[in-house]
Design a protein around this nucleic acid. Structure first.
Length: 272
DNA sequence: TTGTGTTTTACGACCTCC
DNA sequence: GGAGGTCGTAAAACACAA
């Protein structure tokens, strides 16, 4: 027979024996792991599947064209492709996962398979490929999500830390409300002109506040003062999730300071 | 050996494109 | 309308644990 032929001998029904197989490339008997032990539904001429279902598997390309291979008695069972067939199909799939009619015909001829079989194999192979792709996409998206979630947790921790600092500093400032340096807005309303000039003590306290802010900086830089920021006396809060100015300076006025507003941040700078 | 889960082969229904 | 695609599914083949 044609060395490129593969298939079953459907003689089970005709000769009363077990199914036999010819290996791809001219092999002999059925292999040991159970491949092809069933009587086949054939190298199906499945372009007409109703007829093909009754066609024996063992056949050459030429025999495929012959009606005499029909066997009305043969049970319809599936069979697996040989490793050699699968190997060639895989190689072809790697080159192009779509199947033009010419290529389908050529592959079928080389493999001793029906064109319909080749087409079905490509359909199933594309489905498996798509599943793998979806799994890979899922893995990538999950990794990206996990990284973002971790980053988010870090930001939340930073946020908590900064809030704690704000609370601490606010309490510290409010504990000094009675000093001549700082008054509440209400106190200032009562005595609007009393503290318009910054004294040496005021500057000292202001510097202390500034130092506190600088020393409480965190790793991400969000909401904390950096040395660069100190130079200009201006603070950026890009990416910060709370309004430091609102919290820290609510109801408190620093006398003799120049108020610099940038976004949600307010910085008080004093001229010497 | 048997039960069970997975993979492979094959098909029908439906959709899109020419 | 026909060809060829995807999608969902049936069933055979296979792997493997008990």
């Amino acid at each position: 027979m044609d060395p490129g032929c593969v298939g079953f001998d459907s003689g089970g029904a005709r000769r009363g024996g077990g199914a036999q197989m010819l290996l791809f490339g001219g092999g002999g008997s059925a292999n040991s792991n159970g491949f092809f032990k069933g009587v086949p539904m054939a190298v199906l001429g499945m372009d007409d599947s109703a007829r093909a279902a009754k066609r024996p598997f063992f056949t050459t390309h030429e025999e495929l064209l012959e009606e005499e291979y029909y066997d009305e008695q043969a049970p319809e069972k599936k069979r697996r492709l040989t490793p050699e067939q699968v190997q060639l199909l895989e190689r072809s799939f790697e080159e192009e996962n779509k199947l033009e009619p010419e290529r389908k015909t050529e592959l079928a001829r080389r493999l001793g398979m029906a064109p319909r079989q080749v087409a079905v194999w490509f359909q199933n192979r594309r489905a498996r490929w798509k599943t793998k792709q979806l799994e890979a996409d899922y893995d990538r998206l999950k990794a990206a999500y996990d990284a973002l979630a971790a980053d988010h947790q870090g930001l939340l921790a930073d946020n908590d830390s900064l809030r704690a600092q704000v609370t601490s500093l606010t309490e510290k400032l409010q504990g000094k409300e009675t000093s001549p340096l700082v008054t509440t807005a209400a106190q200032e309303a009562d005595q609007p002109d009393e503290h318009t000039a910054a004294s040496g003590t005021e500057k000292l306290l202001a510097q202390q506040l500034k130092d506190d802010l600088l020393s409480s900086g965190n790793s991400t830089g969000h909401g904390a003062l950096s040395s660069e920021e100190e130079d200009g006396g201006v603070v950026s809060n890009e990416g910060c999730s709370f309004d430091l100015a609102d919290v820290m300076f609510a109801g408190v006025t620093y006398h003799g300071a120049e108020e610099v507003q940038l976004g949600n941040w307010t910085w008080f700078d004093w001229e010497d």
